[in-house]
Amino acid sequence: MSTRSVTGGHAISKPLFRLGVSPTLRLLAVILLGLALMALDHRVNELQFVRGALATVTYPLQVAVDAPVRAVSRVFESFTSREDLITENRILRSENAELRARQLRFEALQLENDRLRALLNTAEQAEERVEIAKLLAVDLDPFRQQIVLNKGRNDDVYAGQPVINADGVIGQVLSTRLTSSIALLISDPSHALPVLSARTGLRGLVVGTGNPQRLEMRHVPLQEDVEPGDLLLTSGLGGRFPADYPVARVTSVERPQGQPFLSIEAEPLAALDRSREVLLLWTDGGVSAIAPLELDNDPETAPNALESEPAEGTP
């Protein structure tokens, strides 16, 4: 074997004293540096510039890995038959018509809602903007629930931004780079989301379990009214997610003996492990903020709402 001859040759030329820093010292330095990085990254989350520098190398790699996967699916798409396309088109068209009809009513309801809210002196709902982001086909740590999106700081994505899809809440942006970002799914064990039950208005916390099909609702006292099938909506209390987005449906409720809280399991409404496109959500200001533009649009309600402003401004 040539490895042996190489070893022999190396042994002869090997100097008694190596020049430079010894490997042990090097290791110690590197461990210290690594520990400092970990502490900074975990505690202060202020390592965006380091991550950004590293991402200049890793992002092309992610794109390179993503490209063939995307190309294959594109090839398959281009082979779909004309009939399939026509059928799909018809279905989409009828769905679109239905949705637009519903949208008409929705706008009327929105106006009515705003007026009623103004009469009741409560805050108006904030304006929202959505944009589609694609998932990069790359795998992350198999024991964390994270995804890579193809939008980054250049597209105004910010850490903590809500990520949804057409079915419900997906997660929130964890860190951003220039052209991509990493989002944490609601099924990650480190993710907790304030929710309320649509049926009873009961508030609670939905925590991930590491399994994309299963969530847990924690800290609900035993006497509370929760039933399988209950819809859980975002409550907007955390300040990150706007209120009233569907999150999950309760699948099972158990009353464990000798424990102060119910054991509630829920299933996320959005297919967390199967969606290839998600929506990024921008909300103008906080949940309880009053949008001044809306007030100008509606002269009848404007004085009322303005009177209520100081009262609402305190929290």
């Binding site: 990254d41 590293l54 992610q62 992350l140 740590d141 860190s175």
Partner: peptide, 8 residues
């Protein structure tokens, strides 16, 4: 960085 883990 690639796997989205704690840096280090």
């Amino acid at each position: 960085t690639l796997q989205g883990q704690l840096l280090g």
